[in-house]
């Protein structure tokens, strides 16, 4: 066995390297957290519709929307991207609400295509979801997606 390459040195490089890059990652994280207020549309969260957005995000989660859709490109690839759906529908909240309402009230049988589950949302809940999607569309995503189709 070649003594030029010792196990203890390999181990030290692992510990040193891991620690070093962890520190660097934490430093970048720190900078990111400080930079986020300019990018993440938190003004909307602090505005009067803030509670509605929070409710919308909660509804988004407890109905597992991410199980079919992507949001800012993350999620499942079965159904359209919704991070920019507000813009796709002409930046019009009523259009988004109408679309959701239409999709969840299609008949259960006889439509041989990808289906959205027939969620029983109230009008307030649909409004909250729409506000959440509007908030998401106004996050600064460095120009992604390339076009309105998502």
């Amino acid at each position: 066995m070649s003594e030029a390459f010792t196990k203890s040195m390999a181990r030290n490089i692992f510990y040193g390297g891991a620690f070093f890059f962890l520190l660097l990652f934490l430093a970048l994280t720190f900078d990111t957290i400080n930079a986020l207020p300019k990018l993440d549309n938190r003004a909307a969260l602090e505005s009067p519709v803030g509670p509605q957005i929070a409710k919308g995000k909660h509804l988004w989660e407890v109905n597992n929307c991410i199980g079919c859709h992507t949001l800012l490109g993350e999620g499942a690839y079965f159904a359209p991207e919704l991070g920019n759906v507000y813009k796709r529908y002409g930046s019009n909240l009523d259009a988004v609400k109408g679309r959701i309402k239409g999709l969840i009230s299609l008949p259960a049988e006889g439509i041989p295509m990808r289906r959205m589950p027939r969620f029983k949302f109230t009008d307030e809940e649909i409004a909250a979801l729409a506000e959440f999607l509007k908030y998401a569309s106004e996050i600064n995503t460095s120009g992604w997606p390339p076009n309105d189709q998502g």
Partner: peptide, 25 residues
């Protein structure tokens, strides 16, 4: 580990590259 390097370390003067090969990786 130290013991083994001690017994074979006499070649370190002429060794190339210098130092532990792992650090070169």
């Amino acid at each position: 580990m130290t013991a083994t390097t001690a017994t074979i370390g006499c070649s370190s003067q002429s060794k190339y590259p210098s130092g532990d090969l792992a650090i070169w990786v």
